[in-house]
Design a binder for these strands. Structure first.
Length: 489
RNA sequence: GCGGAAGUAGCUCACCUGGUAGAGCGACAGCUUCCCAAGCUGUAGGUAGCGGGUUCGAGUCCCGUCUUCCGCUCCA
């Protein structure tokens, strides 16, 4: 455990030291749970995005992508349930330091009453609670807790703090004349990208002539005010999601849920990360919108944690948007129902969602790639840190290194550089000993280094050095580009 | 949010019981080098997280504050 923690710390340090991830606004002491991607981090992140985007939209002919705005009409969040369901009032017990959701605390109390046979009183307490919650009457709720002498299960006392509201969503003012008085000006920064897909469901379906089943994919930023946000980029206030909402016939959700579970796991393992680093975790307690849900968990340095969620969202979202917007969110299905011999007709589609945290995927990839190797021989102590990134995700694909910076070697190296840089990211370096340069490339995960030596002048060959094995082979200069392209495709 | 620990050069750390900050690595420039870090020379870089107090004098003692880490707590 201490070892894993050290490893996690080492990964975080490495990310900063080698230009992958910096704390946000660091010169001002940072901003909690916000991070910036540096020169290599942004490349790696982009490569992950591209890999996801291509495998979703290009490999599935019935999935298209969109890029919806972060700002959305405030009613969106009423329809989605975020305004009502996720602004939970909380209360802390001063003795046990334990924090409760006020509704959970009172509901547990009413369950106790029921168990004691006091059904009437249990109902009365719940009714009072609902009325007070609806009014956001926190003082009244606290009074309700105190009057009923509701105790903390841990400390057994009723020494409570005032009730506070924890807002999940960030909000800001909309419009050029700012007036905090005017609630109508309030817009939220989206807490999930999914709603941008749902509100565009019909736009995409009609303009793209999409037939069910079909999917809409999106990559974008989302924002959540986490109560505690820690663990590096695992839980950030500003993060990026890669989501796909798959629209299906009602009644087929079970089949498609299983399909996407399998499909998504295949995507993960296709990167070459071993399957035993992943596991499914089925949700027992389902969110308000789902009829089945699971996580794909990854074995991060701090243990197995959620990396991706696959949710069967029913028609909850589209149905609510239909209700709140008064616009039909229906699809007319012309396919023939074998049971009746007639078209299926109009319905609100059901939805299977796959939602992966891009930043978490980044953390998964880099923490799996991070390797400390002991290369000591009896004569000499030696070690290296190498990022064994999948070549297609590596920020830099090829380093081109003249063995010495004279005798015409840099010129040959430059020619290779000019040839290759049109096709993938290359790095030219003539400083320091060759060993140092190899190790620097290992540290950022560059899969290939070619070295130009004196033999190159004679027979137009170079050595290509493989990152993971450190093995070298001599190849014709003309084959370098194809060799790298084959590895990153 | 609570409890504990820590904040000195890019990184890892030193400065013992207060007397005006140092090393290694790294970076940069050059030399050397025919294939895996630690060969040579030189250069740059710190008002010791920030603010206040005690003192003739504070990195070193005290208080506050910020940040980070560990544990607890919460999570769609």
């Amino acid at each position: 455990m201490a070892n894993d923690s050290n490893r996690f710390q080492a990964i975080i340090s490495h990310c900063k030291e080698y230009g992958f991830i910096f704390p946000s606004s660091e010169i001002y002491d940072g901003l909690q749970a916000v991070y910036d991607y540096g020169q290599w981090g942004s490349e790696l992140k982009k490569n992950i995005k591209d890999y996801w985007w291509d495998s979703m939209t290009r490999m599935h002919e019935n999935i298209v992508g969109i890029d919806a705005a972060i700002f959305m009409h405030p009613t969106t969040w009423k329809a989605s349930g975020h305004v009502d369901n996720f602004n939970d009032p909380m209360i802390d017990n001063k003795d046990s330091k334990k924090r409760y959701r006020v509704d959970h605390l009172i509901e547990a109390f009413s369950d106790e009453l029921r168990a004691a046979g006091q059904n009437d009183k249990a109902d009365a307490v719940l009714a009072d609670m609902d009325a007070l919650l609806a009014k956001d009457d926190f003082a009244g709720l606290k009074k309700l807790i105190e009057e009923n002498k509701i105790k903390c299960a841990v400390s057994g006392t009723y020494n409570w703090t005032d009730i506070r509201q924890f807002n999940l969503m960030f909000s800001t003012e909309f419009g050029s004349t700012v007036s905090s008085e005017d609630a109508d000006n309030k817009v939220y920064l989206r807490p999930e990208t999914a709603q941008g897909i749902f509100v565009n469901f019909l736009n995409v379906q009609k303009s793209g002539r999409m037939k069910i089943p079909f999917g809409i994919a999106q990559i974008g930023k989302a924002f959540r005010n986490e109560i505690v946000a820690r663990q590096f980029i695992f839980r950030m206030r500003e993060f990026e999601q890669m989501e796909m909402q798959f629209f299906i016939q009602p009644g087929t959700q079970k089949k498609w849920y299983e399909f996407w579970k399998e499909e998504r796991l295949k995507w993960h393992t296709s990167l070459g990360i071993p399957a035993d680093k992943y596991r499914f975790h089925d949700h027992i307690k389902l969110a308000h919108y789902a009829d089945a849900a699971c996580d794909i968990e990854f074995e991060f340095p701090m243990g197995f944690k959620e990396l991706e969620g696959i949710h069967s969202r029913t028609d909850f979202d589209l149905r609510n948007h239909q209700e709140y917007s008064k616009k039909k969110q229906q699809y007319f299905d012309n396919d023939i129902d074998p049971a009746t011999g007639k078209p299926y007709g109009n319905y609100i589609p059901y939805v299977i969602e796959t939602s992966i945290g891009l930043d978490r995927m980044f953390l998964a990839v880099i923490s799996h790639a991070y390797t400390e190797e002991d290369l000591s021989t009896p004569e000499k102590k030696d070690d290296r840190v190498v990022l064994k990134l999948p070549p297609r995700l590596a920020p830099m694909k090829l380093a081109i290194l003249p063995l010495v910076k004279k005798d015409g070697l840099p010129e040959i190296a430059r020619q290779i550089m000019d040839e290759c840089k049109l096709h993938f990211r290359c790095f030219y370096e003539e400083k320091d000993t060759i060993g140092k340069r190899y190790r620097r490339m290992d540290a950022i995960g560059t899969p290939f280094c070619v070295t130009v030596d004196h033999q190159s002048k004679e027979d137009n060959t170079v050595t290509i050095r493989h990152r993971d094995s450190m093995k070298q082979e001599r190849v014709p200069i003309t084959s370098v580009k194809e060799l790298v392209l084959n590895a990153i495709r």
